[in-house]
Design a protein around this nucleic acid. Structure first.
Length: 428
DNA sequence: TCTGGGGTCCTAGGACCC
DNA sequence: TCTGGGGTCCTAGGACCC
């Protein structure tokens, strides 16, 4: 029986392409997008790459370079990128119902055609339609496993003669390509394991496939074994069409400046708990436990301290004040004076669906889940959704100037998610 | 001065029980 | 006082991804 084809569709320089879609003057010019807090470089146009700007470089080291080379710089605008991502997904869904929204800029599709010519033509249609309907350029890589499809996508991007599409299904060609693929460029083999492999003489993807499964299993665990099987053409990583329900929700930010006093940490944490609980409710979930962490700046010469604490809830809840109280209790316990803190964060754990959860005896003792909390949170979320995040917030997140607030000095407009700014061409 | 944020999964080791 | 092995559950830490 024929194996189906895994099709990896990857948006080119996605964040840069999103910015360009609404500002065509940026075409053919060096453009970069910075991480949250304007910390480091996380997306580069081809022109920026050609100037030698590296991935994940700290932005501050390049400030002068940006100016002298006329590089356009953006703070990351996730409201825009997230919305563009779902538009791309929408276009791709028209080609097959078997689609996995793998990451903000990548989708896997499963196609069952055996006709190679037809496959090629479909791949080109995909590119053309996504470009035309969203403004985003993509490359398409096709193979019999997800991991090989990622390799194929890489070739579609790198080989000048690819036309943005690469099918990697011929065993001889697969072997040739794996022989020149550095092990650190294999999907699933990260920095640490690459180093480990190099030390043991495994340098290329092909080297890896020539070790026994037992050896791989022992050195790289079952995850590494799945990767190796996939490189050998045996599907081991299935499609996930339904996004699995979240197991945790995090909100954390690095501060704009270092923070030393508890009260400002409390404000920041309060803000993050509000965001995290909003996310929780929007996904119709409740949390069974709250975790808080704080940390000083890892890369500075300051005295270092970081710590983490967890508190369970009596019964799962999505009621902000209740989770807030737990989080603040943990923070007070973790806080030590005399340190310059860089970051605080909250994790909501043990998530369960808000409906369909078995009621327990505790539910009848616990008034935080009582009927009047739900409408309150619902009203809060509705107002913030309609009038913008943070319109209504808790006093505990502070009313004065927020020194801890992250830097975002180069933010573009939220073109697609603020109705007044929605360009006609993209209205549906 | 300034180096992201949000996720998932696996494993080893300790606690505990029988 | 001496003495065993196996199972489960939990957690911290490490690895990966984009």
């Amino acid at each position: 029986m024929e194996h189906p084809f895994y099709v990896m569709v990857d948006c080119n320089n996605f964040y840069v392409s999103c910015e360009r879609a609404f500002n065509p003057a940026l075409e053919r010019r060096p453009v970069v997008v910075l991480s949250n807090n304007d910390g480091c470089i996380i997306a580069r146009s081809e022109e920026a790459k050609a100037l030698g700007i590296g991935m994940a470089e700290p932005a501050f080291k390049r400030r002068a370079f940006f100016l002298s080379n006329d590089v356009t710089v953006f703070s990351s605008n996730y409201a825009l990128y997230g919305d563009m991502s779902s538009r791309v997904h929408g276009v791709l869904s028209r080609f097959t119902p078997e689609i996995e929204h793998y990451s903000i800029d990548e989708c896997f599709l499963l196609l069952h055609t055996k006709n190679r010519k037809r496959l090629f033509s479909l791949a080109h249609q995909i590119r053309q339609q996504v470009r035309q309907w969203t403004g985003i350029p993509v490359c398409v890589g096709i193979a019999h496993t997800k991991t090989l499809a990622k390799v194929a996508n890489r070739l579609a991007k790198k080989r000048p003669n690819s036309g943005g599409v690469w099918i990697l299904d011929d065993p001889t060609q697969i072997e040739q390509e794996l022989a020149i693929l550095e092990i650190e460029d294999v999907w699933g083999i990260g920095r640490r394991n690459s180093k480990k492999m190099h030390a043991m003489g495994v340098k290329s993807a092909l080297d890896l496939t020539q070790r026994t499964h037992e050896w791989i299993r022992k050195k790289l665990t079952v995850c590494g074994l799945r990767t190796v099987m996939e490189l050998q053409g045996i599907p081991a990583i299935p499609m996930e069409e339904e996004p699995p329900t979240a197991k945790s929700i995090t909100c954390s930010r690095s501060f704009g400046v270092r923070i030393t006093n508890l009260s400002e940490l409390q404000e920041a944490l309060s803000c993050y708990v509000q965001r995290a609980t909003e996310k929780l409710r929007s996904r119709k979930l409740q949390a069974g436990a709250v975790q808080v962490f704080i940390t000083t700046a890892r890369l500075s010469d300051d005295p270092q301290y970081s710590n983490i604490g967890t508190l369970p809830l009596q019964t799962p809840s999505s009621y902000t004040p209740e989770l807030q109280a737990k989080a603040q209790t943990i923070l007070k316990d973790l806080f030590r004076s005399g340190f310059r803190y860089q970051k605080v964060g909250v994790l909501l754990l043990e998530l369960v669906p808000e409906n369909g959860r078995q009621l327990t005896f505790n539910d009848f003792l616990d008034d935080s889940n009582s009927k009047q909390n739900k409408p309150l949170m619902k009203a809060l979320d509705a107002i913030n959704q309609r009038h913008g995040r943070g319109t209504l917030h808790f006093a505990s997140s502070g009313t004065g100037k927020k020194r801890w607030h992250m830097n975002q000095n180069k933010l573009s407009k939220r073109f697609t998610t603020t109705w007044s700014e929605l360009p006609i061409a993209f209205a549906r």
